[in-house]
Amino acid sequence: MRRLLFGVLASLFAGGQLMAQAHVGQYEQADIAYGSTLYATYCVVCHGESGDLFPGVNLRSGVFRHAASDRDLRGILLDGIPGTTMVAGAYEDAELVALIAYLRNMDTEIGGVALGDATSGQALFAGKGDCGSCHRVAGQGPRFAPDLSDIGAIRSASVLSRALEDPHGSTLPMNRAVRVVTAEGTVINGRRLNEDTYSVQLIAEDERLLSLDKRDLREYTILTAWDLPSYDDVFSEEEVTDLLAYLRSLKGMN
């Protein structure tokens, strides 16, 4: 059971979109539309159509690490972010207005998913779903499975929804489990954190961080899929929308 639930929520770590409602209504529709064409020209190669292509950045989350206000966003668009691959751009005023309008409304522009009641969702997370027996939220819960404290900031509702519906199909390579047998015959099950030609870094079931030299291993297997039922069998349709609302409300420490 523990393994099953881990797999389900591991699959929540998928690419995404989101519901940033805070600024809706503040921007002209024409600007948003123009902004989307500018986005497709200047931004899409690095940030992707869904705004989440660049690792650790989801433009649809409504949370920008280097900008709070529109004025900040304007500064970033013009000057870039030093020390990162975010480059400066020579935008005209109208282009800036449009790009910011689009960024602020990107999620609703691309499409949303029905969300229910977050408080009920939290109860389902802790109760019926027993999610907290594997997943950690805001410092509570075990750490072997992915920490969900900021899942709502890095994954869209539609991706979370798909993951609940089809956890098997939505499990990403980045959440793959590994099985290791050391030279001494010790078996270690872990979640892979990083890998290179010569070594692998993982978090073991007992929450130890391990870095292993591949040459020293008798066996190293990457498990590409989890054998999981759909969460549709566990939750009602309404409950899924509640759970999604709760997960979407998890925005990390920001």
């Binding site: 770590f13 190669v45 390579p173 980045m174 892979r192 954190l193 990083n194 890998e195």
Partner: peptide, 29 residues
Amino acid sequence: LGGIPGTPIPGGPNVPSLRGDRINNWTEA
């Protein structure tokens, strides 16, 4: 550009060379 290429792997890197990520846990896919 006339369109945009995508990755066949959901959540995978679209244009890997631009990412320069120090974490590689999607590798074999």
